[in-house]
Amino acid sequence: MTRAPQRLPSQFLGLALPLLLAACASPFHGYGVQPGTAREAVLARMGQPTRSVRLASGERLQYSLQPFGQYAWMVDLDPSGRVIRSRQVLNANDFDRIQPGWTRDDVEREFGPPAMVDRVASWNGPIMTYRWNDGSDMFYFVYLDGQNVVRRAHPGMEFHNAPDRD
């Protein structure tokens, strides 16, 4: 006995189509965006940015996968809307650029929004935390004072399902 092919429910197709279209424009396509690429082509390739930031030299499109992802691409555009450079910034070399005296705005301009902002009793100000990967799952902590000025910053390990220590 031959069975007729089963059809997918229309509800499934209604959900699948937007997901397929969203997969076409993705921040994961941030690698290899060439200098000179038009802003419209970047948006078609990567989708809407997490945030757009004005720069003295033009505009920065930020594509951040925070709070749960470990990557953030910065696509810098000149005043005519053409790519100057595109790079993934959540890495040790870029984090090393953070210096005491930077402001929260400086950090967010360079790295995008953090995964989280916390407070602890032993520090009198917010602590910005970025997730990233350096061969291991990592955090990068940026300690701000009460005026949102960076006072210190450092990496730390992110442990998943760490065993209890008895």
Rank of each mutant, 00 (worst) to 15 (best):
T2S: 13
R3I: 07
A4R: 15
A4Q: 11
S10N: 10
Q11P: 01
L13K: 13
A16R: 03
L17C: 05
P18C: 01
A22Q: 06
C24N: 11
S26C: 01
P27T: 01
F28A: 15
F28M: 14
H29M: 10
G36M: 02
A38C: 10
R39I: 07
E40L: 00
V42K: 08
L43Q: 02
L43P: 00
A44N: 09
A44E: 10
R45K: 08
R45N: 11
R45E: 11
R45F: 04
G47W: 03
G47A: 06
S52W: 03
S52C: 09
V53K: 11
L55V: 02
A56T: 08
S57N: 11
S57F: 03
R60Q: 14
R60N: 10
L65S: 15
Q66W: 04
Q70D: 13
Y71K: 15
Y71M: 15
A72M: 09
A72E: 03
W73K: 03
D76A: 12
D78A: 05
V83P: 07
V83T: 05
R85Y: 06
L90T: 00
N91I: 06
N93G: 12
Q99E: 12
G101R: 11
W102E: 07
T103M: 04
R104E: 10
V107W: 07
V107E: 07
E108K: 10
F111R: 12
P113I: 10
P114V: 01
A115Q: 06
D118C: 10
D118Y: 07
R119M: 11
V120W: 13
V120H: 09
A121D: 13
S122Y: 07
G125A: 05
G125D: 06
P126Q: 13
P126A: 04
M128L: 14
M128S: 14
T129F: 09
Y130S: 01
R131W: 08
R131P: 02
D134N: 03
D134R: 05
S136F: 09
S136Q: 12
S136W: 12
M138C: 12
Y140C: 05
Y143I: 09
L144V: 05
N148C: 03
V149F: 14
H154K: 13
H154Q: 13
P155T: 05
F159S: 15
H160N: 07
D164M: 13
D166A: 12
